[in-house]
Design a protein around this nucleic acid. Structure first.
Lengths: 216, 216
DNA sequence: ATACTGTTCAACACTGATGTATAAAATTGT
DNA sequence: ACAATTTTATACATCAGTGTTGAACAGTAT
């Protein structure tokens, strides 16, 4: 039985370009990892969808595990650049970071999802560049006088990240037009800012809130 | 080469109990699906960890795909019961639902995660029982006079669900003591209620909020 | 021209999983 | 005591993936 790998997607010959090949592989890898999780990733499938020979994939990444690692690292880098890449002085503005994050995740929902799965399964999360940046940004905000007192920074960080990353997945932004994606990002940031400014409850109409569930 | 399945976990003989066996398989299946995703689930591994023969697993679930489906259905049911199972009249209280949800997810983080992965990949989400209940609860709240005007119900629902489900995963509640888990649930609901009541910003100290990022 | 690098192709040994089948044991209900 | 059901134990055919190797081919640079 021949080792086919039948070159479905790119019959047309193309210029040699190792970096591009590498990126093409990584991109497909990220997409598949986002869909089925890192454990389900197969080099064969990646090669096929990327339109390269399986041998080529093994040439760039020695083993399946290394491909997984390379993909997650690559994604984390891209994400950090996109969210914190702009001018240093902007970093303290939470609404800018939120906007960047929402924008990035809507544009590249697979990357956000890969990052999320990775960070959830990491032993030491401080190893991750993006998380360190994000966390310190949140800590700075919580400690500032712009924030209410008593905010639980970790809950806050997890809440913002999970919802920003999964909102585009929920909305299937991948199969939307640029305009629709714009609207998705906009809806998200608008509602988050609204929430952060006013909360949900009209307190005057919802006064009996001391009655909290017993198990809390 | 022998088909081993070497019975690692349960050398001790036990009473026959088909329902229990079925549940044991489903439980392990859910745990593995939460860790590695449904695509990576293997019947062999499930059988091994559940301490039953592979044949038994195939006796209860004809194929791998059916096991995956049975697991997700089972999880969705359990979740609905846990969150909306109490008295009907309580349903309108958002803080009760939030408390139930937080509690359930901290106690059974795998179940929440399985449900989340499933719902994200479903074509028609209204097929899912839990989602229908949750969404209608949110819609009712948003339409009530207890809520601020202009809340985006879908963003709100996705935000609450994703963070409630992934917070315990983040905190690794699975390997915590009951007291620690209690504290995790408590931290989450406390912060969420605080957020829902007051928001994040002290508006008087953060007045220049009209300066939103351009791409929003 | 030549050497180098990236890429393709085919073959191979190996592992681990799926799904099927069948006989035998163990437990339960009647 | 008997029948039905559940569970175990094996075996087998099949498939898909991994990781390796060696030879060939195609652009690129010197």
């Amino acid at each position: 039985m021949a080792d086919s790998t039948p070159q479905l997607t790119r019959p047309r010959k193309r210029r040699r370009d190792p970096e591009r090949t590498r990126e093409a592989i990584l991109e497909v890898s990220a997409k598949l990892m986002a869909k089925d999780g890192p454990e389900a990733l197969s080099v064969s499938q990646v090669a096929q969808l990327a339109g390269v020979n399986r041998g080529t994939a093994y040439h760039h990444f020695q083993t399946r595990e290394q491909l997984v690692k390379a993909t997650t690292d690559w994604v984390s880098e891209k994400m950090t650049d996109a969210v914190f890449g702009d001018a240093e002085q902007q970093r303290n503005r939470p609404e800018v970071v939120l906007g960047n994050l929402a924008h990035f995740c809507v544009e590249y929902p697979e990357f956000g999802r890969v990052w999320l799965v990775r960070i959830l399964s990491m032993e030491d999360r401080n190893q991750d560049h993006f998380w360190r940046q994000f966390k310190s940004q949140v800590d700075r905000f919580v400690a500032s006088e712009a924030a209410h007192e008593g905010i639980d920074a970790e809950v806050h960080a997890v809440r913002v990240l999970t919802s920003a990353i999964l909102w585009p997945v929920w909305m299937r932004s991948r199969s939307a037009t640029p305009e629709e994606r714009e609207e998705m990002a906009s809806r998200f940031t608008r509602e988050m800012m609204r929430l952060h400014l006013d909360g949900l409850f009209r307190k005057e109409k919802y006064s009996d809130l001391e009655m909290m569930p017993t198990h809390l």
